[in-house]
Design a protein around this nucleic acid. Structure first.
Length: 259
DNA sequence: AGCGATGTTCGCCG
DNA sequence: TCGGCGAACATCGC
């Protein structure tokens, strides 16, 4: 599920439900999900509170001063706040139990996510080599990132050290809206096109956040409802084409998005 | 019932 | 050194 819009939705959910409550206990159901020692996680969290959270790209960082809890949701992560009296949600991997009788479950079906503890946000971003957050970046930051790199557009958007937060589905949508072929080298784009690309990154992500990351009910003029075989481009009625790039598959309109 | 999947990482190669 | 590629990771759903 989680590209930037969904992680932003998780962030808002966590902020709404789980801030400022004292953490009583941590339950780790499967410690393969941890990127840190279980002891260290427990020591860092028990008795602390989630003070605030920030999202960078697809990562959610929670201030448990002096450290930060980091959650990444892989391809199948979720958060659920529920009453301690109830059964934990299926596939819960880490459960944060608060003093008020409610729990926050970190859920991961396929174990691709990770939970860890870091000392500072700056250090974390540095270690992971993350680029600027795709939703919060300024045009200047984006322009600079484009100039610094040579890569085909689809790979650039997917590369978290270029910009952080865009995944496979939204990258297709962004390139479709900007009418860029996925294999176009980003450093061959005109200044106008770079600006247009930037605007569309923000707009597509903004729309995704408004939709709470739910892809199931997009308007026809977006590519998202047409990301499957034998679909027609909503703009020009050409056949939507599937392409494989670096082991990921993407969809595009060969007529609107010329190489 | 095999294949694909909204992600990241690592090693190989040009 | 960088970018493209493919495999590996784990497991469920189509």
């Amino acid at each position: 599920m989680p590209e930037l819009p969904e992680v932003e939705t998780f962030k808002r959910y966590l902020d709404k439900t789980s801030l400022k409550q004292v953490i009583k206990e941590i339950r780790v159901t499967d410690n393969r999900i941890l990127n840190t020692e279980e002891k260290r996680l427990i020591k860092a969290l028990v008795g602390k509170r989630f003070e605030s959270s920030i999202r960078h790209g697809k990562y959610l960082l929670v201030d448990i001063s002096p450290q930060f809890l980091v959650m990444h949701f892989g391809m199948s992560g979720d958060l659920e706040y529920y009453n301690n009296k109830d059964e934990p949600p299926k596939f819960s991997k880490v459960i944060f139990q608060f003093n008020n009788g409610f729990n926050l479950a970190y859920i991961s079906i396929r174990m691709f996510g990770k939970v860890s503890i870091v000392n500072s946000i700056e250090e974390f971003i540095e270690n992971k080599k993350l680029g600027p957050d795709a939703y919060k970046m300024s045009f200047e930051e984006f322009h600079e990132a484009v100039q610094r790199r040579s890569a085909i557009a689809k790979n650039a958007l997917l590369n978290q050290s270029f910009i952080a937060g865009v995944g496979n589905i939204y990258s297709d949508e962004i390139l479709f809206r900007t009418k860029i072929h996925p294999k176009t080298n980003i450093n061959s784009l005109s200044d106008n096109k770079v600006k247009e690309l930037y605007d569309n990154i923000i707009e597509v992500l903004e729309f995704g956040i408004r939709k709470k990351g739910d892809l199931s009910s997009y308007p026809n003029e977006f590519l998202i409802p047409h990301r499957k075989k034998e679909e027609k481009c909503p703009i020009c009625n050409s056949e939507i084409t599937r392409i494989e790039i670096s082991g990921r598959h993407g969809f595009f309109c060969p007529s609107c998005q010329k190489e």
